[in-house]
């Protein structure tokens, strides 16, 4: 077992809202774990909570939050600041706004190395150039002197990932890193991420709502709905045989050439993710579920299949009422 990040029973709340209601998540070395779900299902705050970058008003608790085997739930702000950008790094959705417009690319990258590694300026510059080259940025020495607004979106995303990888982190959290990129750049970026991950043995927690991305890069996938992981498993297993009605609905809403007859309708899930407050019981998906029954208001059982595949639904693996 080579777990870089282990989360057990993570809960996050904002005022009366329960944003995350007890999720378990393990990311292993060299593995890409995708967290999938609609907007507002709690996937981004879950990721932010790992770096402890939640807004101050957030309620946060976890039975276990371990990074490289060490418990970091009780670590103070100072200890967390040492880990951030060094052992764990994060890249954000918007390459257009994720770099500080007031500084050159070089000063932003060098800053990270000097803070965490105490590197000399010359050594830091060499390392930055090498890293930019590695992520496929042309003329890296020149880029160091440029400002973010002089770079294209794809280039900025490469700079971001180069910055994130400068200190060779064990864990990279990427919050919708491809959403703001156009499709060709997206494909290049995913290929780059996969290459680097293989070379560095990086653990990646990738947050996305794009099942196409999941299918391309994920080793394991967790489908999140209203603050819970409703289905988890190896990507192949989940895509081949989705068990939870929500996962099925998501997969049915992807257009697949040849599978959907011309003029036929794509699948869709009516409604939006509900806001869940304290005292909510039962399956959160029941209001939108095609196979919901009155008994879905009862606490949901979790079913475990082979290879860690698990899902939370009243209907068992055989599709029959599991009689909770």
């Amino acid at each position: 077992m080579n777990a870089v990040l282990e989360i057990e029973d993570l809960r996050i709340g904002f005022g009366p809202l329960e944003a995350v209601r007890g999720i378990d998540l393990v990311v292993e070395r060299g593995q890409t774990h995708c967290l999938v779900g609609e907007s507002g299902c709690g996937k981004s705050v879950s990721a932010l909570s790992v770096l402890r970058l939640l807004p101050k008003r957030a309620r946060f608790s976890a039975a276990r939050l371990a990074f490289e085997g060490n418990d970091i739930a009780g670590l103070g702000e100072r200890g967390m600041a040492r880990l951030r950008g060094d052992r764990m790094a994060m890249i954000f959705q918007e390459p257009m706004t994720s770099l500080n417009p007031a500084y050159t690319i070089g000063s932003q990258m060098i800053e990270v190395l000097r803070r965490h590694r105490g590197a000399s300026r010359a050594a830091a510059v060499d390392r930055c150039i090498a890293m930019l080259e590695r992520v496929g940025v042309t003329a890296p020495a020149m880029r160091l002197g440029q400002f973010p607004h002089q770079l294209s979106g794809g280039l900025r995303q490469r700079v971001m990932i180069a910055t994130a990888l400068l200190c060779e982190p064990a864990l990279l959290i990427a919050d919708e890193p491809t959403t703001a990129l156009d499709v060709t750049v997206q494909a290049q970026f995913l290929r780059l991420l996969a290459d680097i991950q293989r070379q560095m043995g990086l653990a990646v927690l990738l947050i996305t709502h794009d099942l196409g991305v999941v299918a391309r890069v994920a080793d394991r996938v967790s489908v999140m709905y209203a603050g819970r992981i409703v289905e988890h498993g190896a990507t192949g297993a989940v895509f081949a045989a989705p068990r939870h009605p929500y996962t099925r609905g998501l997969l049915a809403s992807i257009p697949v050439p040849g599978k959907i007859p011309p003029g036929g309708r794509l699948g869709s899930i009516p409604g939006i993710v509900p806001r869940i407050g304290a005292g909510f019981a039962g399956c959160a998906f029941r209001a939108r579920c095609a196979v919901a029954m009155p008994a879905c208001a009862a606490p949901v059982p979790e079913h475990r299949l082979a290879d860690g595949h698990r899902f939370a639904c009243h209907l068992g693996p055989d599709g029959a009422w599991s009689g909770a």
Partner: peptide
Amino acid sequence: GLDYIAAAWAAGCS
């Protein structure tokens, strides 16, 4: 509220 501030936090800034 912008991403580069969040990115600065994530890079370990005080």
